[in-house]
Design a protein around this nucleic acid. Structure first.
Lengths: 194, 194, 194, 194
DNA sequence: GACTAAGCGAGACGGTACGTCTTGTCTTCAC
DNA sequence: GTGAAGACAAGACGTACCGTCTCGCTTAGTC
């Protein structure tokens, strides 16, 4: 036990809320690149110090605002067939990434390349849980004999989801239903003929 | 035809060289994020105007400096077996991305998410040629019966290379030899038992 | 009498002491300009509120800390001759102002120009008593026939001490013994030949 | 000869004017203490950098704006009698210091106590020329036998003008005509009966 | 040989945002 | 009710770059 209660004024939840809301609004309207701490403070009616007190920079702040506003949703269904579950996860992800969330994810992975804290926060808060759900499906598929037993789950997941993120970030190809079906066939059945 | 030669002083190749060299030096030492036109101009002993005259911004400038300094190398071998060629391409890419080039590629794909010109320049100048080489191998594999005939080459390539870029950009997993071998098996043979 | 004893906790003398001591330490080390309530609170181990509860601002606080630490000393001697007493007051003041106290006085008169409370506090606490002592000597000199009877004491004092403060605040000339002797001659005997 | 003309864009006189004018306006309306570089930049429609490029800080800037706006005026008359000239200088100074200029001078001497550059600039630009004029009168007075020959001019001037500045800065006494006349008598004829 | 472009270095300019500092107020808990 | 702790809104600090705009100076054709 630490024993003593912390002295001093409590953190203001109103300020926290105002900051996250303002951040998300600006993220939506201007994009991450044009987001500024100054802008957030001004829109939230908050001192800059208050932001710097609780967040290390605009990267992590943006991630938290995004998670706060968007993440709650998005849960994966689970049925008897691992193969079907995997495909339905892929379809859901593709659908989401075609919408506004896709832009946020692009921007956050992008900006994360030069902001380790942000990268960490985004992986931890957004990608890791989804990856864990996928890994779960994959393990189930191996257990019930649907998937090859010898494969490394992480590599298999990279192969399936990597393709989606690659399209999102790099390739100009769209992430439409056709692509997802095709990817399902390719990844599940393999490229080599025999 | 315009017919007439343009009047006025010719573009200085010395300035061009100095700018590209300075840009690459700063890119190496400071990273893309901390790169600034001001810094390049100062290090190159060049006016800022000269940079803005020929490049639209630091994004495209960095891409050109990178291509100028690094890209010339990196060519893929070609043998009788498409499968072997694909694996050797993957191994080569993995090796390169483990080294300093990996950081440049990460930074450029990252920054490209909020700079369309840069994204375009990087894809055009760096990724597209490599993708074309991979597509070539894939088509050969389909032609000589090594690879499944029905597959969309682009999707197949996304599945293989997407996994590598996913590791580079997002996952904390390293892109070591074991990963590449495993990825080869997974992607070529498929995930589903059949 | 209000009858009732004041309720609540008594003012902490320890806090008062810690605040005045910390203020004076910072005044010595950093100068008035760089003094901050924040710094005082931190060095004294005291909440800012406690300072604001008892002092209107850093100006008055600094004056009180200065008076608390320095003022007790400095008393003027008194002999039979008003002329001698006046000169000895001038010499004493000059000596003090050549030392560290000179800097405090400079800073306080300076800062007082944009802080009326501080100005008031410094005059009341430091300058007025000394001026009164001088006025006393002057009156004695008029009474015993050493000084001209018609003169306004305040103007006479301004003429003598004003010169010293002028040197302190404005002129780059030093306030050395030679200056004081010369000033004595000039002020006492006058500038005009007859 | 340096030979080469300075390269680069010339300093903008429009910006210089706008800055000085804005500074003086704010100085008048808000006082030196509440003057801020930010405020000047905003009112002048100028980047902060432009101010920092040419002035070391708000102190020196304020002095220059003051000199630019106010100083041109104020010249001393010169007649046959040094005594009369001295008195007329004193009266003129007193009159000016009773007006708005008095506040500027108070603030500048005050702030100069913690800003050496500003102090230097104000003495150099404002006080020194006036002191030189006074010294000139005094020397003339000594030369033509009006004033005591043995006196140090600087000390004599300190004694006369010091009293005025002392009233301005410290004493609450007003600098009215009565005071000036009285000061004239006291300083010129001396305090001691003799 | 003069004229007319355009390129070039230098660097001033109006801005935006940075991350820090301090102000004076408010809130909480301990005494 | 006092006091230590510390959060809060506000706003200025001085710095770094942005992208644009003069400058005066080289080049190169074109007349």
């Amino acid at each position: 036990m630490t024993g003593h209660a912390a002295p001093g004024r409590k953190r203001s939840d109103a300020a926290r809320r105002a900051i996250l809301d303002a951040t998300f609004r600006l993220l939506e309207q201007e994009g991450f690149d044009r987001l500024s701490i100054e802008g957030v403070a001004s829109l939230a009616g908050v001192g800059k110090t208050t932001i710097y007190r609780w967040w290390p920079g605009k990267g992590v702040l943006a991630v938290e605002a995004f998670l706060d506003a968007v993440a709650p949703a998005i849960a994966f269904p689970s049925t008897a067939s691992a193969r079907a579950d995997l495909l339905s996860q892929m379809r859901l992800l593709a659908e989401i990434y075609r919408g506004p969330t896709g832009r946020f994810v692009r921007e956050m992975i992008g900006a994360g390349q030069s902001d380790p804290d942000m990268r960490e926060a985004f992986i931890e808060g957004f990608l890791a849980p989804r990856r864990e759900a996928a890994r779960e499906v994959f393990r189930r598929g191996q257990a019930n004999g649907e998937f090859r037993p010898g494969l490394d789950p992480d590599v298999a997941i990279d192969s399936v989801y990597g393709a989606i993120y690659y399209r999102l970030l790099v390739s100009s190809g769209s992430i439409d239903d056709g692509f997802v079906e095709e990817l399902g066939k390719t990844a599940l059945n393999g490229i080599a003929l025999h």
